Computed example of a mutant assay.
Amino acid sequence: MKIDVQLTTARKQKPASDQLVFGKTFTDHMFIMDYTAGTGWHDARIVPYQPITLDPASTVFHYGQTVFEGLKAYMTKDEQILLFRPEKNMQRMNRSNDRLCMPHIDEEFALEGLKQLITIERDWIPTAEGTSLYIRPFIIATEPYLGVSPSKRYQFIIILSPVGAYYKEGINPVKIAVENQYVRAAVGGTGNAKTAGNYAGSLKAQEVAEAAGYSQVLWLDGKEKQYIEEVGSMNIFFKINGEVVTPALNGSILEGVTRSSIIELLQHWNIPVTERRISIEELYQAYKEGLLEEAFGTGTAAVISPVGELFWNGEKLIINDGKTGELSTKLYDTLTGIQTGKVEDPFGWTVRVLENRVSI
């Protein structure tokens, strides 16, 4: 399939690197591809960034048929563009598509469209420390039909946003409240798909936590509300008595690309790492016995987010004296070093965007 390109005639002003706020600024162009039942995906194109027009009866508005991904592009010191394990995001998007009864994309073609878009938007990639070009691919159901059934029409869109740090705290520890009332997802639901409803349903707990002075919530399982699942929109890791533990994938936990990379890094360093079910009671006992050494969330946006405090049952659990742990720092420095080309990549995770420059 050919990708048609229409370049903008009105380029936007780029913000200064120190003024970047996550997800607020968008580049000059976007990638779009349409799907029609019986035809498949068609009309791939790169066009000026613009509003999209949808029928008010479009399925996405009424039944939430939508999935999305998040990844980043980085500019190296020698001005090469790197992506980090982008094939994993395309694979996960198709797993999400499957769960939401949406058509699979051609992963290689979608990645080629992304590379062409990034090539055009090269000058939007910030180069200051801690900055990157955030990439948001998403699919929406566009058929105007109010019947409860899978849509017969879709759009696949990729937009780009230059970003700074996701959390204003940066690599410094955040305070997290353990969520006892609301539930993010349940086994058999859509927790292992990256779909909008999961995030909409999490906003109330987030709002309550923020009002109490906490950055995010620690989610427990939807059935017994005993077993730890995720932290905010990230996967969670704990270092307990020298061993790193993360909740096992159980059907309600999203399989993060950063999560997988952290596990592989720890194994590469011969640091014990286990994927298993872990309860909040077990974590509390480890804390009381002085065995809870570190805790950190992992995700594309923040990479590593150390946890300095957990609030549970009216008690504040201060982890590592509220400071960033040695392992959290090493993981952050190594992973971001690989992503930006500053550290050797022994895993072959980074993908270089070979450019055919388009003048605009």
Rank of each mutant, 00 (worst) to 15 (best):
D78W: 05
E79R: 15
Q80V: 04
L82P: 04
L82T: 07
F84Q: 05
E87Q: 13
N89Q: 09
Q91R: 13
R92H: 07
R95G: 00
N97G: 03
N97T: 07
M102S: 07
H104D: 13
I105V: 15
I105H: 04
E108A: 15
E108F: 01
F109S: 03
A110C: 12
L111N: 12
E112H: 13
L114A: 07
K115H: 02
K115T: 03
K115N: 04
T119I: 13
I120S: 11
E121W: 05
E121P: 04
E121K: 09
E121M: 06
T127N: 07
A128F: 05
E129N: 11
T131C: 14
S132F: 09
L133D: 11
L133K: 12
Y134Q: 07
I135Q: 09
F138I: 03
F138M: 02
F138T: 01
I140N: 00
I140D: 01
T142M: 01
T142V: 03
P144M: 07
P144T: 06
P144H: 06
P144I: 05
V148A: 10
P150W: 10
S151R: 02
Y154E: 03
Q155P: 03
F156M: 11
F156H: 12
I157P: 01
I158E: 07
I158M: 13
I159D: 10
S161Q: 09
P162I: 11
G164Y: 10
G164H: 11
K168L: 10
E169H: 06
G170P: 05
I171M: 11
N172I: 01
P173G: 02
V174Q: 03
V174N: 02
V174I: 15
K175S: 14
K175I: 00
I176F: 08
A177K: 15
V178M: 05
E179Q: 14
Q181L: 14
V183K: 14
V187G: 04
G188F: 14
G189R: 08
T190P: 01
N192Y: 04
A193W: 09
A193I: 09
T195F: 02
N198C: 03
N198M: 04
S202M: 06
Q206F: 08
E207S: 06
E210S: 05
A211L: 12
A212I: 02
G213A: 12
Y214I: 03
Y214F: 15
Y214L: 05
S215T: 15
Q216S: 10
Q216P: 00
Q216H: 05
W219Q: 05
W219G: 02
L220R: 08
G222P: 11
